[in-house]
Design a protein around this nucleic acid. Structure first.
Lengths: 226, 226
DNA sequence: TGTACATCAGTGAACGCGCGTTCACTGATGTAC
DNA sequence: TGTACATCAGTGAACGCGCGTTCACTGATGTAC
C-alpha cells in the first residue's frame, strides 16, 4: 500500500502535486488552531471533502506529512531571513537588525510553524531517514553570514576553548565560518529564541510586558560587544 | 459529583493528601515519558492500581490536576533558585552565576516540568480561576533580587522608555524594583530561557554543540554590561 | 479514431485502541449516642 | 462498650468520541496499439 512518492510531470502528476499542497495547507490550518498534537489525518481529509484513507495515496503516514511540514517551514524561514538580510541598507548593523526583526516577525506570524521547528518532536514521532538538521542549514547559514560580515575577519573567540565548533562546522559544511562567528551566532540565535519563545507562548502578555524593546536591545548589545 | 477539595486534618484526610500526592507523582512520571499531551487520568489510575473514575474523588478533572502540577513546579523552581542564590559566596556576581547554573540544572533535571511552565497551555486547557502568573512570582522575585543586588541602586534604564515596566511592577507587587532592574532581569531571563529551551528540546545535541559555555558567557556578559 | 487494457484515486467497512467523564451502586470506615 | 447511622472510596458499566491504519473494492482516467 505504501504511497509511492513518485515525481513525474504528466497531467496526473500535476493534480497529485496540487492535492499534496492542499493537504499541507489544511494541516497547517489545523496546527494553527489546535496545537501540534491536533494534526489528524482524518480531520484533514474531512476538511478536503475526502475520507481518511485517501490521504495514504499522498503521504506514507502521519509522520511523513509532519516531516514535510517541518522541512517546508525551515525553507520558508530561511528565505524570510535572507530576504531581510539582503534588502535595504548596506550597513551591516542595520542588516543584522533587519534579520532580527524578520526572525521575530516570522515566528509571530506563524507561531505553530515556529514551534514545529524548535520544539522536540512529539512523542511517538520518528523522523526516520530525513535529516532535519540538514533542512535547518540554510536558515543557519543566513545568520552565520550576517554575523560574519559584521564581525569581519575577527578571530577572537568570545569565551571558552576555540575548538568548540570545529566538529560542527566540518559536519555541516560551515568550514568557512570562524569559531568566533559560530559562537557569536549561536549565542545570538539562543537569545532570539528565548524572547520569541516566551512571546509566542504568551508569557510576556500574561505578565503585561511588551517585549519589543528586547529585540532592539539584542542588536545594540551585539554591536556594543564588537 | 464535583470533587470537594476540602482540607481537613482527620485521619481520613491524611490518606487523602497522601493519595493526591501519589497521583501527582504518577502524573509527572507520565509527563516525563510521553510529553504533555500524554497525561491520561485512566493511565494514572491504572498505574496506582485503581480505575479511572476513582481519581475524581481527588481532582475535579484533568485540567485541575494539570494546574496543580504547574503551581507545584513554580514553587519547586523558586526554591531551587533561592537556595542557589542564597548559598555560598557573598560576591553578587558569583551568586548570580550560581543562580544561572541552578536555573539550567533544574530544567535539565526535569524538562517535562520546565515545559509545563513555559509552554503555552495545551489546546483545550482552561486555567480557570487559578492565576498562574501569580504562582510564578516567587521565582521571578528571586531573579529580580539577585539582579537588583548586583546592579545596586542603578537607575539607568538600559533601553527604551522607562515606563515599560511600571504597570507590571504595580500589578505584581514588585514596586521596590527599579525599571532598570526589571528590564535587565527580563532580558536575562529571556536569554536563559532561550538556551535552556533549545537545550532541552535537543537542538544543540542534534547539531553537535555543547551549550555549557553559553550559560557562562551569559554571566560574564552581564557583568561586563554593568 | 476507436478499442482494450493498465493505472490509480477514492470509498466504506473494519480493527484495535484510548480518551474524559457520568452514574448507580457496594462495601468499608469513621462518628454519635 | 456497643449499636445505628452517615460518610466516603472505589468499582464496573456505559456514553460518545476520536485516532491511525489496512483492506478489498468501484469507477474514472490515462496509455498503447
Amino acid at each position: 500500500m505504501a504511497a509511492d512518492i513518485r515525481t513525474g510531470s504528466g497531467p496526473r502528476d500535476r493534480f497529485r502535486a496540487q492535492l499534496r499542497q492542499e493537504v499541507k495547507t489544511a494541516a497547517l490550518r489545523q496546527l494553527a488552531e489546535g496545537g501540534p498534537e491536533a494534526l489528524s489525518l482524518n480531520a484533514i481529509a474531512k476538511q478536503l471533502g475526502m475520507t481518511g484513507p485517501a490521504l495514504y495515496r499522498y503521504f506514507a503516514n502521519r509522520d511523513s506529512l509532519l516531516t514535510e511540514l517541518v522541512v517546508d517551514a525551515y525553507g520558508d524561514l530561511a528565505s524570510a531571513l535572507s530576504r531581510a538580510a539582503g534588502a535595504g541598507s548596506a550597513d551591516p548593523i542595520t542588516r543584522l537588525a533587519e534579520l532580527v526583526r524578520a526572525y521575530r516577525a516570522w515566528a509571530l506570524a506563524e507561531p505553530h510553524r515556529y514551534r514545529l521547528l524548535f520544539r522536540a518532536p512529539l512523542q511517538g514521532y520518528d523522523a526516520q531517514s530525513t535529516n532535519l538538521v540538514e533542512a535547518s542549514q540554510p536558515a543557519m547559514a543566513v545568520l552565520l553570514d550576517a554575523v560574519g560580515t559584521l564581525a569581519g575577519p575577527d578571530t577572537r573567540t568570545p569565551e571558552g576553548p576555540a575548538a568548540r565548533f570545529t566538529r560542527w562546522r566540518e559536519r555541516h559544511g560551515f568550514e568557512d565560518t570562524s569559531e568566533a562567528v559560530a559562537a557569536r551566532s549561536t549565542m545570538l540565535w539562543a537569545h532570539l529564541h528565548g524572547i520569541v519563545a516566551l512571546e509566542i507562548e504568551g508569557n510576556f502578555t500574561s505578565m503585561g510586558i511588551d517585549p519589543s524593546f528586547l529585540y532592539e536591545a539584542e542588536v545594540t548589545d551585539f554591536a556594543r560587544s564588537l
